[in-house]
Design a protein around this nucleic acid. Structure first.
Lengths: 153, 153
DNA sequence: CATAAGGGTTCCCACCGTGGGAAGGTCAAG
DNA sequence: CTTGACCTTCCCACGGTGGGAACCCTTATG
């Protein structure tokens, strides 16, 4: 199976398959005489696994762990569950950040009449000296969590 | 005022101030004879504005627009409000994606006993042939939205 | 058999926003 | 004058992903 077919079958683009190989997330693919990578069912299976884990927002590192657990048929299911739940915690944090932003922005937008007059509390707030915008909604101090980048495919 | 003081006063790191200057988000700072950048109150003010807008999850491009609107004292407030609300829409989409992930993961985790036995529905689901994990929760098809990276400072 | 189309291969570049660090210049205080 | 804190520019890294160039391989068709 060529990389193109593997991509189609797994939902992971050829570019990404090569990238995952490069960073060691998947083992180096077998090569034909031509130099073409050659994939089998098991490889497709693994790629699909990765694709789904990405869809669930796991980072590549976490997916590496998951693959390890997946391969180890004697591991305790608690290991997997722990990993999953700690990821859920992470997701909840991000959700809370976003909710804070939404709440602040909505309250600012609500107080802006939004017509052709120039005065606008949104900009006034952003430009005001001193305090923190997030304080408007009494959000937890730190928005900036480690970056989150969902799949874009 | 040196860049260090400006950073302190605005909450934007010196690195980021230089970066914003480089990409043209802020005008080139005045220089002393020594070559040091020199900042005034108005610059600090603008940097604080940027910092807050980042805290609210606006992209650098959007902040550019916001700064333009901020500077234009005769613009209609509706322009600002529109921009803010469309950003809120974006945030809502991201929130929904995250909620989908959380829901799926929780339902998987719930069905995993999480003890020292090896069988684990989480990995089984991820590794299953065929269907889409998100289907478990009947989420809207596409998780992968354009990337989201909140501030990390 | 020759050629074209559509794969594949590697390699580099870009994005966004941020941090790290090296190599060198400046400034203020001791 | 020396020390240390600061500034300057420049390059590199991250996570993931896409774009594209330059080149090789395979397969179908005239």
């Amino acid at each position: 199976m060529n990389i193109g077919q593997a991509a189609q079958a797994s939902g992971v683009s050829a570019k990404m398959i090569r990238y995952y190989e490069e960073i060691g997330l998947v083992p180096k693919a077998a090569r034909r005489e031509s130099g073409y990578r050659d994939y089998e069912e098991a490889d497709i299976h693994r790629l699909r696994f990765i694709r789904r884990a990405r869809d669930l927002g796991f980072t590549v590192d976490q997916i590496g762990e998951l693959l390890g657990l997946w391969a180890d048929r004697s591991r305790a299911s608690s290991n997997v569950k722990t990993l999953a739940l700690s990821h859920v915690e992470e997701l909840r944090r991000k959700k809370a950040e976003i909710e804070g932003m939404i709440a602040t922005l909505e309250s600012l937008a609500q107080s802006c009449h939004g017509d052709d007059r120039p005065d606008c509390p949104i900009l006034e707030e952003l430009g005001a000296a001193g305090h923190d915008v997030s304080g408007l909604q009494a959000q937890p101090r730190r928005f900036g969590a480690p970056g989150f980048s969902p799949r874009r495919g």
